[in-house]
Design a protein around this nucleic acid. Structure first.
Lengths: 128, 128
DNA sequence: CTGTATCCGGCCGGATACTG
DNA sequence: CAGTATCCGGCCGGATACAG
């Protein structure tokens, strides 16, 4: 931070607003997983179902529809029998994923602290 | 991306996992707003209530407690009458906010596309 | 293979009242 | 000023069954 002079007229609330919109788009329980699973190239429905461990068909479809609707995924259906559908990241989504690496890096730097905050307070062993 | 050679053994799923954890921590309806509102320095409860437009006392408290618990905020209570409580970002949180600017930048680059995706689909012109 | 439809429980979050 | 307690509605998401 401390770049107040560079941004200009942007108040903190503006940042918060824009930021919240972005976060909300990927804040679904499965959005990140689906996005990352589709990052390596065109993937099929069943491939996603397998890579995104634990997701149900319902949530996979809903997540895909949302990402598609937000312009992050493109759905390509081939009129074959049996049907074949491929999902591909848009340029926007690729850039988003790249931006998200900043968060991944942050998470890695503070992995220990996060771990501690997610367990601790409940374990309470006698070993210290 | 395209840093596959640098990270080493990290599979996409690992990224997705770490990433999801981070996103989850700031995915509450008010987390981002509170975080950004507290970024300028120590802020008091009522200050937050005012800057974070629309938040209720209940949600403000819950959000603060969560951020505190995740090590992103520090709560300082002064034993005065009337009471005075200040909230400050931790170093972790400051770094997180800096990382989040990557997302803000992304949002700004794709602001138009985001706008379109949030309206559209309801207009339904006859051009298609 | 790629979905859709329905039911249902749990959690998130708003409104309101009360407290030290 | 800075919270806490309670009620309650709506949405998210899991399980399951059905369909082209």
């Amino acid at each position: 931070m401390t770049r107040r002079s560079g941004v200009g007229s942007q108040r903190p609330n503006d940042h918060a607003c824009a930021l919240s919109e972005v976060v909300e788009q990927v804040s679904g329980k499965w959005s990140i997983g689906v996005l990352l699973a589709a990052a390596d190239g065109p993937v099929r429905y069943t491939q996603l179902e397998q890579s995104v461990t634990g997701i149900s068909r319902r949530m996979l479809t809903l997540t895909l529809r949302n990402l598609e609707r937000d312009g992050l995924l493109v759905r390509t259906a081939y009129p074959t029998v049996p049907p074949k559908v491929e999902y591909t990241l848009t340029g926007m989504a690729v850039e988003l994923c790249e931006s998200l690496t900043a968060l991944t890096d942050w998470a890695q730097r503070h992995r220990d602290a996060i771990e501690r905050s997610r367990v601790a307070y409940d374990a309470e062993p006698g070993t210290g």
